[in-house]
Simulated scan of single mutants.
Amino acid sequence: MNAQGAEGERLALGFAHLMEELWAADSEQSTLLSVVKAAATSVPGAIAAGVSMRRARGRIDTAAATAAFVSEVDRAQYELREGPCVASVGDNLVNLANDLRTDTQWPRFGPAAVSLGVDAMLSFRLSARGEVIGALNLYADRPLAFTEHSCAVGTIFAAHASVAIAAARRAETLTEALKTRSEISEAVGIVMERHRLTSEEAFEVLRRISQNRNIKLREVAHRILYTGEIPGVQR
């Protein structure tokens, strides 16, 4: 086997191992932590990695990072509204700033990053099913640290990470929905027993408490389960 073939096999095995770790994570946050730890060691040239998540109303925040300075560098991007990460969450899939000392794309962010010890950045958009999740960001402490090979490895890595993060998010949503349904059912049972109501009448009691107090139905159920108190509502 030639050197190129050996490298391809090594990468394939590395990504297979990575996916095992990502799918073994039991929450979105643990998945994000696995992503940044693996990215920092898998993408040539990187000394640290972070994941920026896209939130409501266009807000971006750093959800996981391998080093404290990552959050500081990211904060500069968010405040200035420019930089590889912001661009990846926005219009471009891959953004490379391989020498932030001389980069002209982001004239305000470059000096800020250098002052924090980062001389190069490489960012990839994270997306699944057409939805932008955020960006995977790699950081280097020297100019020209990232190569075409870094970009190729990072692109594959980001694709795998996107799927894993989206799956973890869906699993958490499903788990929360099942928990909510179970709590509402238990609360209905308590109301039925205490007030000798049918299940439909008991559910209507919960619904009216929710409306009168302007709180979600699941919160009403949670309070009944954990306090034992049922706010008085006329039938």
Rank of each mutant, 00 (worst) to 15 (best):
residue 81 R to H: 13
residue 52 S to K: 06
residue 17 H to N: 14
residue 77 Q to T: 00
residue 40 A to K: 07
residue 75 R to C: 09
residue 73 V to I: 14
residue 78 Y to V: 08
residue 13 L to N: 11
residue 80 L to G: 07
residue 62 T to Q: 05
residue 72 E to P: 06
residue 52 S to Q: 11
residue 42 S to I: 10
residue 72 E to A: 15
residue 23 W to G: 11
residue 14 G to M: 05
residue 22 L to S: 01
residue 78 Y to S: 04
residue 61 D to I: 03
residue 80 L to P: 10
residue 13 L to F: 09
residue 24 A to G: 03
residue 27 S to Y: 09
residue 45 G to Y: 07
residue 30 S to G: 01
residue 83 G to T: 01
residue 18 L to G: 01
residue 23 W to T: 15
residue 82 E to I: 05
residue 39 A to Q: 03
residue 45 G to N: 11
residue 73 V to T: 10
residue 25 A to C: 05
residue 52 S to V: 14
residue 77 Q to A: 02
residue 13 L to Y: 06
residue 24 A to I: 02
residue 47 I to K: 10
residue 55 R to G: 11
residue 33 L to H: 14
residue 9 E to W: 12
residue 50 G to M: 02
residue 69 F to D: 09
residue 57 R to I: 07
residue 9 E to Y: 13
residue 80 L to A: 14
residue 14 G to Y: 06
residue 42 S to Y: 13
residue 9 E to I: 12
residue 17 H to A: 15
residue 55 R to N: 13
residue 46 A to S: 10
residue 79 E to T: 11
residue 14 G to S: 08
residue 39 A to P: 02
residue 27 S to L: 09
residue 62 T to Y: 00
residue 39 A to C: 08
residue 11 L to M: 06
residue 34 S to M: 09
residue 56 A to C: 01
residue 49 A to F: 05
residue 19 M to E: 14
residue 66 T to R: 06
residue 50 G to A: 10
residue 34 S to V: 09
residue 83 G to Q: 06
residue 38 A to L: 06
residue 24 A to P: 05
residue 21 E to L: 14
residue 29 Q to V: 07
residue 32 L to Q: 04
residue 22 L to R: 02
residue 64 A to G: 01
residue 77 Q to M: 00
residue 70 V to C: 09
residue 62 T to S: 00
residue 21 E to K: 14
residue 29 Q to I: 08
residue 13 L to M: 07
residue 13 L to S: 13
residue 26 D to I: 02
residue 42 S to T: 15
residue 71 S to G: 03
residue 9 E to Q: 13
residue 38 A to T: 09
residue 14 G to W: 04
residue 54 R to Y: 12
residue 79 E to C: 03
residue 30 S to C: 00
residue 39 A to Y: 02
residue 29 Q to K: 12
residue 51 V to P: 06
residue 84 P to Q: 04
residue 44 P to I: 08
residue 13 L to R: 14
residue 83 G to Y: 02
residue 70 V to D: 04
residue 19 M to L: 14
residue 45 G to Q: 08
residue 37 K to P: 01
